[in-house]
Nucleic acid binder design. Structure first.
Lengths: 94, 94
DNA sequence: TAAGTGCTTCTAAAAATGTAGAAATATCTA
DNA sequence: TAGATATTTCTACATTTTTAGAAGCACTTA
C-alpha cells in the first residue's frame, strides 16, 4: 500500500471517533488557533489518561502539534496537513 | 452530538480501514461507475464473509449502494454523499 | 527543599472491530 | 427439479481500541 494511503487511513482513523472529531472541530473554530487541554476537559467527561490517549492519536496522525507552556499543554491544528488529506473539512464540518 | 457529526464519524470510520479505503478508491477510478464483488475479490485476499462485512460498512455509511444482477452484486459510489462529507476526496485520494 | 498541580506512562480491563468456517438463502443452468 | 454458483447470516475467536486507576515525571510556588 502506498505511503500516502497509509497516512490517509491513519488520518481517517483519528477522526473516526466522536471525541477526537469534536476536538478537531473545536480547534477549527477557536479564534487564536490553539486550545489548552483544560478547555478540552471542560467539554469531555473523560479521565486524564483517556484524554492523553486521544491527544496522542491526533498527534500521531500529524493533525495537531503540542506546545508546553508552564504546567499546561496547548494544542495547535496543522491546517496544511488537514487540507492535504481532507480538503474542505474546515468548510464542511463547521 | 449533532446528526451531521454522527454521520460524519460513521463516514470516517468506514474509510479508516485499508480494505474499505482501497475499495472506495477503486470505485472512484473505475470508468463505468460500478464494480462487481468479483473485481474486489480479485484484489483483496479475504474470505467472502469478510468482504461482505466491508460492503455493509460502506453501505451503512451511505457511501455505496448495491444492485443485484443475476447472481452477482454490483456496487456504486454515491459521489454526492462523498462530496458532502469529504469534498475533494476524489481529487486528493486518486 | 517541600508541597501542590498538571500531564504522561504503565497496567489492566471492557468494548468494538475484523476475520473466517459453517449453514442458509437466492439465482442460474442443464 | 437437481446441481452448481454467489452471497449473506450466524457464530465464534483474535486483534485492536477505548478507558481508568496507580505511579511517575516535570514544573511552579511557598
Amino acid at each position: 500500500m502506498a505511503e500516502f494511503s497509509q497516512e490517509a487511513v491513519r488520518v481517517f482513523k483519528a477522526l473516526a471517533e466522536p471525541t477526537r472529531y469534536e476536538m478537531l472541530r473545536m480547534l477549527l473554530k477557536c479564534s487564536n488557533g490553539e486550545l489548552s487541554c483544560r478547555e478540552f476537559e471542560k467539554v469531555f467527561d473523560l479521565s486524564k489518561p483517556a484524554m492523553s490517549h486521544h491527544y496522542r492519536v491526533l498527534e500521531n496522525a500529524g493533525l495537531v502539534s503540542s506546545r508546553k507552556e508552564g504546567p499546561y499543554v496547548y494544542y495547535q491544528l496543522d491546517r496544511e496537513r488537514l487540507e492535504r488529506f481532507l480538503p474542505g473539512f474546515a468548510q464542511v464540518h463547521k
